[in-house]
Design a protein around this nucleic acid. Sequence first.
DNA 1: CGCCTGACTCGACGTTCGTCAAGTAATTGC
DNA 2: GCAATTACTTGACGAACGTCGAGTCAGGCG
Lengths: 118, 118
Amino acid sequence: MPKALPVLDTTAPVCCSPMAAGPVDEGAALEIALRLKALADPVRVRLMSLILAEAELGVCTCDLAPAVGVTEATVSHHLKQLRDAGLVEGTRKGTNVYYRPNADGLVALCRVIDPDCC
Amino acid sequence: MPKALPVLDTTAPVCCSPMAAGPVDEGAALEIALRLKALADPVRVRLMSLILAEAELGVCTCDLAPAVGVTEATVSHHLKQLRDAGLVEGTRKGTNVYYRPNADGLVALCRVIDPDCC
DNA sequence: CGCCTGACTCGACGTTCGTCAAGTAATTGC
DNA sequence: GCAATTACTTGACGAACGTCGAGTCAGGCG
Protein backbone atom coordinates (compact mmCIF):
# COMPACT_ATOMS: atom_id res chain seq x y z
CA MET A 1 0.00 0.00 0.00
CA PRO A 2 1.99 2.98 -1.19
CA LYS A 3 -0.34 5.63 0.16
CA ALA A 4 -3.54 6.18 2.08
CA LEU A 5 -6.67 6.86 0.13
CA PRO A 6 -8.57 9.99 1.15
CA VAL A 7 -11.76 8.46 -0.20
CA LEU A 8 -11.29 9.92 -3.65
CA ASP A 9 -10.82 13.59 -2.91
CA THR A 10 -14.44 14.64 -2.76
CA THR A 11 -13.00 18.10 -2.24
CA ALA A 12 -11.61 18.40 -5.75
CA PRO A 13 -14.14 19.31 -8.46
CA VAL A 14 -13.37 16.47 -10.83
CA CYS A 15 -15.82 17.50 -13.48
CA CYS A 16 -13.58 17.52 -16.49
CA SER A 17 -11.25 14.64 -16.99
CA PRO A 18 -8.04 15.49 -15.15
CA MET A 19 -6.28 13.08 -17.46
CA ALA A 20 -7.34 14.52 -20.80
CA ALA A 21 -7.28 18.06 -19.44
CA GLY A 22 -3.50 18.14 -19.60
CA PRO A 23 -0.36 16.46 -18.24
CA VAL A 24 -0.97 15.25 -14.69
CA ASP A 25 1.74 15.57 -12.08
CA GLU A 26 3.24 12.63 -10.24
CA GLY A 27 0.96 12.84 -7.20
CA ALA A 28 -2.27 13.08 -9.16
CA ALA A 29 -1.18 10.19 -11.35
CA LEU A 30 -0.65 8.07 -8.27
CA GLU A 31 -4.11 8.94 -6.96
CA ILE A 32 -5.75 8.03 -10.24
CA ALA A 33 -3.74 4.85 -10.60
CA LEU A 34 -4.67 3.71 -7.09
CA ARG A 35 -8.38 4.07 -7.83
CA LEU A 36 -8.07 2.22 -11.09
CA LYS A 37 -6.03 -0.50 -9.44
CA ALA A 38 -8.83 -0.97 -6.95
CA LEU A 39 -10.97 -2.20 -9.81
CA ALA A 40 -8.24 -3.79 -11.92
CA ASP A 41 -8.77 -7.36 -10.76
CA PRO A 42 -11.23 -9.90 -12.13
CA VAL A 43 -12.50 -10.87 -8.70
CA ARG A 44 -13.11 -7.26 -7.72
CA VAL A 45 -14.87 -6.58 -11.02
CA ARG A 46 -17.22 -9.47 -10.33
CA LEU A 47 -17.76 -8.35 -6.74
CA MET A 48 -18.56 -4.86 -7.96
CA SER A 49 -21.05 -6.14 -10.52
CA LEU A 50 -22.74 -8.32 -7.90
CA ILE A 51 -22.96 -5.39 -5.50
CA LEU A 52 -24.33 -3.16 -8.26
CA ALA A 53 -26.93 -5.80 -9.08
CA GLU A 54 -28.25 -5.66 -5.53
CA ALA A 55 -27.78 -1.95 -5.00
CA GLU A 56 -31.05 -1.64 -3.07
CA LEU A 57 -30.78 -4.48 -0.58
CA GLY A 58 -27.03 -4.85 -0.27
CA VAL A 59 -25.07 -8.09 -0.25
CA CYS A 60 -23.18 -9.70 2.59
CA THR A 61 -19.72 -11.23 2.43
CA CYS A 62 -20.98 -14.74 3.02
CA ASP A 63 -23.10 -14.53 -0.14
CA LEU A 64 -20.34 -13.01 -2.23
CA ALA A 65 -17.69 -15.60 -1.39
CA PRO A 66 -19.40 -18.61 -3.00
CA ALA A 67 -20.59 -16.44 -5.90
CA VAL A 68 -17.04 -15.64 -7.00
CA GLY A 69 -15.47 -18.89 -5.85
CA VAL A 70 -12.88 -17.72 -3.36
CA THR A 71 -12.45 -17.82 0.40
CA GLU A 72 -14.29 -15.38 2.62
CA ALA A 73 -10.91 -14.11 3.76
CA THR A 74 -10.05 -13.24 0.18
CA VAL A 75 -13.41 -11.58 -0.40
CA SER A 76 -12.87 -9.52 2.74
CA HIS A 77 -9.47 -8.48 1.45
CA HIS A 78 -10.92 -7.35 -1.88
CA LEU A 79 -13.85 -5.57 -0.29
CA LYS A 80 -11.42 -3.59 1.81
CA GLN A 81 -9.73 -2.32 -1.32
CA LEU A 82 -13.04 -1.35 -2.88
CA ARG A 83 -14.00 0.37 0.37
CA ASP A 84 -10.69 2.24 0.58
CA ALA A 85 -11.16 3.45 -2.98
CA GLY A 86 -14.61 4.77 -2.16
CA LEU A 87 -16.35 2.42 -4.57
CA VAL A 88 -18.52 0.53 -2.06
CA GLU A 89 -19.85 1.04 1.44
CA GLY A 90 -20.49 -1.61 4.06
CA THR A 91 -22.97 -1.35 6.92
CA ARG A 92 -23.20 -3.87 9.70
CA LYS A 93 -26.58 -5.34 10.52
CA GLY A 94 -26.34 -7.96 13.21
CA THR A 95 -23.63 -10.44 12.37
CA ASN A 96 -23.74 -9.55 8.68
CA VAL A 97 -22.17 -6.66 6.81
CA TYR A 98 -24.19 -5.52 3.84
CA TYR A 99 -22.34 -3.91 0.96
CA ARG A 100 -23.78 -1.29 -1.33
CA PRO A 101 -22.21 0.55 -4.28
CA ASN A 102 -21.03 4.13 -3.93
CA ALA A 103 -22.16 5.57 -7.25
CA ASP A 104 -20.21 8.78 -6.76
CA GLY A 105 -16.93 6.91 -6.64
CA LEU A 106 -17.62 5.10 -9.89
CA VAL A 107 -18.81 8.23 -11.67
CA ALA A 108 -15.74 10.14 -10.50
CA LEU A 109 -13.50 7.39 -11.81
CA CYS A 110 -15.31 7.48 -15.11
CA ARG A 111 -14.89 11.22 -15.42
CA VAL A 112 -11.19 10.87 -14.84
CA ILE A 113 -10.67 8.65 -17.84
CA ASP A 114 -13.31 10.01 -20.21
CA PRO A 115 -11.49 11.93 -22.96
CA ASP A 116 -14.53 13.92 -24.08
CA CYS A 117 -16.31 14.74 -20.89
CA CYS A 118 -17.66 18.35 -20.91
CA MET B 1 -0.05 -12.10 -19.26
CA PRO B 2 -3.02 -14.36 -18.65
CA LYS B 3 -4.68 -13.79 -21.97
CA ALA B 4 -4.32 -12.06 -25.31
CA LEU B 5 -6.14 -8.80 -25.84
CA PRO B 6 -8.41 -8.67 -28.89
CA VAL B 7 -8.06 -4.87 -28.95
CA LEU B 8 -11.06 -4.33 -26.73
CA ASP B 9 -13.74 -6.30 -28.52
CA THR B 10 -14.87 -3.69 -30.99
CA THR B 11 -17.36 -6.35 -32.01
CA ALA B 12 -19.35 -6.20 -28.80
CA PRO B 13 -21.80 -3.30 -28.53
CA VAL B 14 -20.62 -1.97 -25.20
CA CYS B 15 -23.17 0.79 -24.92
CA CYS B 16 -24.56 0.10 -21.53
CA SER B 17 -22.17 -0.63 -18.73
CA PRO B 18 -21.57 -4.38 -18.72
CA MET B 19 -20.63 -4.06 -15.08
CA ALA B 20 -23.72 -2.30 -13.78
CA ALA B 21 -25.96 -4.18 -16.21
CA GLY B 22 -25.74 -7.30 -14.08
CA PRO B 23 -23.34 -9.92 -12.74
CA VAL B 24 -20.48 -10.45 -15.18
CA ASP B 25 -19.10 -13.90 -15.79
CA GLU B 26 -15.52 -14.88 -15.14
CA GLY B 27 -14.27 -14.30 -18.66
CA ALA B 28 -15.84 -10.87 -19.06
CA ALA B 29 -14.48 -9.85 -15.67
CA LEU B 30 -11.00 -10.81 -16.80
CA GLU B 31 -11.34 -8.76 -19.97
CA ILE B 32 -12.49 -5.71 -18.05
CA ALA B 33 -9.81 -6.13 -15.39
CA LEU B 34 -7.08 -6.38 -18.03
CA ARG B 35 -8.13 -3.09 -19.61
CA LEU B 36 -8.30 -1.35 -16.28
CA LYS B 37 -4.94 -2.78 -15.29
CA ALA B 38 -3.46 -1.27 -18.44
CA LEU B 39 -4.16 2.15 -16.95
CA ALA B 40 -3.69 1.27 -13.28
CA ASP B 41 -0.12 2.50 -12.96
CA PRO B 42 1.05 6.04 -12.22
CA VAL B 43 3.58 6.04 -15.03
CA ARG B 44 1.02 4.87 -17.57
CA VAL B 45 -1.48 7.47 -16.35
CA ARG B 46 1.10 10.18 -16.93
CA LEU B 47 2.04 8.76 -20.32
CA MET B 48 -1.62 8.71 -21.31
CA SER B 49 -2.13 12.30 -20.22
CA LEU B 50 0.94 13.40 -22.15
CA ILE B 51 -0.26 11.58 -25.25
CA LEU B 52 -3.73 13.06 -24.87
CA ALA B 53 -2.19 16.52 -24.56
CA GLU B 54 -0.52 16.10 -27.96
CA ALA B 55 -3.31 14.20 -29.62
CA GLU B 56 -2.85 16.05 -32.91
CA LEU B 57 0.90 15.79 -33.44
CA GLY B 58 1.71 12.65 -31.50
CA VAL B 59 4.63 12.12 -29.15
CA CYS B 60 7.66 9.91 -29.58
CA THR B 61 9.19 7.62 -26.97
CA CYS B 62 12.34 9.67 -26.64
CA ASP B 63 10.29 12.68 -25.54
CA LEU B 64 8.13 10.69 -23.13
CA ALA B 65 11.00 9.05 -21.27
CA PRO B 66 12.51 12.22 -19.77
CA ALA B 67 9.03 13.65 -19.16
CA VAL B 68 8.10 10.84 -16.78
CA GLY B 69 11.58 10.20 -15.44
CA VAL B 70 12.15 6.57 -16.36
CA THR B 71 14.29 4.70 -18.85
CA GLU B 72 13.26 4.47 -22.49
CA ALA B 73 13.10 0.73 -22.05
CA THR B 74 10.56 1.16 -19.30
CA VAL B 75 8.52 3.62 -21.35
CA SER B 76 8.54 1.16 -24.22
CA HIS B 77 7.28 -1.54 -21.87
CA HIS B 78 4.42 0.66 -20.65
CA LEU B 79 3.51 1.82 -24.13
CA LYS B 80 3.20 -1.78 -25.22
CA GLN B 81 0.61 -2.36 -22.51
CA LEU B 82 -1.35 0.72 -23.53
CA ARG B 83 -1.14 -0.40 -27.14
CA ASP B 84 -2.29 -3.94 -26.31
CA ALA B 85 -5.25 -2.52 -24.43
CA GLY B 86 -6.23 -0.41 -27.42
CA LEU B 87 -5.72 2.87 -25.61
CA VAL B 88 -2.99 4.31 -27.84
CA GLU B 89 -1.68 3.83 -31.36
CA GLY B 90 1.87 4.20 -32.55
CA THR B 91 2.95 5.04 -36.10
CA ARG B 92 6.53 4.96 -37.22
CA LYS B 93 7.92 7.99 -39.02
CA GLY B 94 11.58 7.55 -39.80
CA THR B 95 13.44 6.46 -36.73
CA ASN B 96 10.74 7.79 -34.43
CA VAL B 97 7.45 6.25 -33.41
CA TYR B 98 4.72 8.78 -32.75
CA TYR B 99 2.00 7.84 -30.30
CA ARG B 100 -1.56 9.08 -30.45
CA PRO B 101 -4.52 8.34 -28.19
CA ASN B 102 -7.25 5.94 -29.28
CA ALA B 103 -10.32 7.75 -28.01
CA ASP B 104 -12.58 4.76 -28.67
CA GLY B 105 -10.64 2.64 -26.24
CA LEU B 106 -10.92 5.19 -23.47
CA VAL B 107 -14.61 5.81 -24.06
CA ALA B 108 -15.31 2.08 -24.09
CA LEU B 109 -13.49 1.70 -20.78
CA CYS B 110 -15.49 4.56 -19.35
CA ARG B 111 -18.76 2.98 -20.45
CA VAL B 112 -17.82 -0.25 -18.75
CA ILE B 113 -17.51 1.35 -15.33
CA ASP B 114 -20.14 4.06 -15.56
CA PRO B 115 -23.08 3.00 -13.36
CA ASP B 116 -25.60 5.32 -14.99
CA CYS B 117 -24.72 5.21 -18.62
CA CYS B 118 -27.80 5.17 -20.89
C1' DC C 1 -22.64 -17.02 30.56
C1' DG C 2 -20.96 -20.05 26.66
C1' DC C 3 -21.37 -20.99 22.02
C1' DC C 4 -21.91 -20.17 17.31
C1' DT C 5 -21.81 -17.59 13.11
C1' DG C 6 -20.21 -14.05 10.13
C1' DA C 7 -16.47 -10.61 9.08
C1' DC C 8 -12.00 -9.38 9.49
C1' DT C 9 -6.69 -9.67 10.46
C1' DC C 10 -2.25 -11.91 10.22
C1' DG C 11 1.49 -14.61 8.34
C1' DA C 12 3.05 -17.20 4.61
C1' DC C 13 3.30 -18.88 -0.13
C1' DG C 14 3.73 -18.36 -5.07
C1' DT C 15 2.91 -15.28 -8.83
C1' DT C 16 2.83 -11.05 -11.23
C1' DC C 17 4.58 -6.42 -11.92
C1' DG C 18 7.79 -2.37 -12.60
C1' DT C 19 12.38 -1.23 -13.36
C1' DC C 20 16.83 -1.23 -15.32
C1' DA C 21 21.19 -2.62 -18.04
C1' DA C 22 22.47 -4.84 -21.98
C1' DG C 23 21.55 -6.45 -26.39
C1' DT C 24 18.80 -6.55 -30.90
C1' DA C 25 15.98 -4.31 -34.87
C1' DA C 26 14.82 -0.87 -37.91
C1' DT C 27 15.74 3.37 -40.40
C1' DT C 28 18.27 7.34 -41.89
C1' DG C 29 22.50 9.64 -43.49
C1' DC C 30 27.33 9.63 -44.87
C1' DG D 1 28.34 -0.65 -46.72
C1' DC D 2 29.03 1.61 -42.11
C1' DA D 3 27.99 4.46 -38.31
C1' DA D 4 24.40 6.66 -35.66
C1' DT D 5 19.94 7.18 -33.65
C1' DT D 6 15.52 5.61 -32.06
C1' DA D 7 12.56 1.78 -30.51
C1' DC D 8 12.01 -2.47 -28.80
C1' DT D 9 13.32 -7.16 -26.52
C1' DT D 10 15.53 -9.98 -23.10
C1' DG D 11 16.97 -11.36 -18.56
C1' DA D 12 17.28 -10.35 -13.90
C1' DC D 13 16.14 -8.34 -9.56
C1' DG D 14 13.18 -6.51 -5.84
C1' DA D 15 8.60 -5.04 -4.61
C1' DA D 16 3.77 -5.58 -4.68
C1' DC D 17 -0.25 -8.54 -5.30
C1' DG D 18 -3.77 -12.46 -4.77
C1' DT D 19 -4.72 -16.38 -2.26
C1' DC D 20 -5.29 -19.26 1.55
C1' DG D 21 -5.35 -21.31 6.50
C1' DA D 22 -5.49 -20.12 11.06
C1' DG D 23 -6.47 -17.01 14.45
C1' DT D 24 -9.18 -12.88 16.29
C1' DC D 25 -13.05 -9.77 16.93
C1' DA D 26 -18.02 -8.66 17.14
C1' DG D 27 -23.03 -9.80 17.67
C1' DG D 28 -26.95 -13.01 18.27
C1' DC D 29 -29.03 -16.96 20.74
C1' DG D 30 -29.61 -20.91 23.49
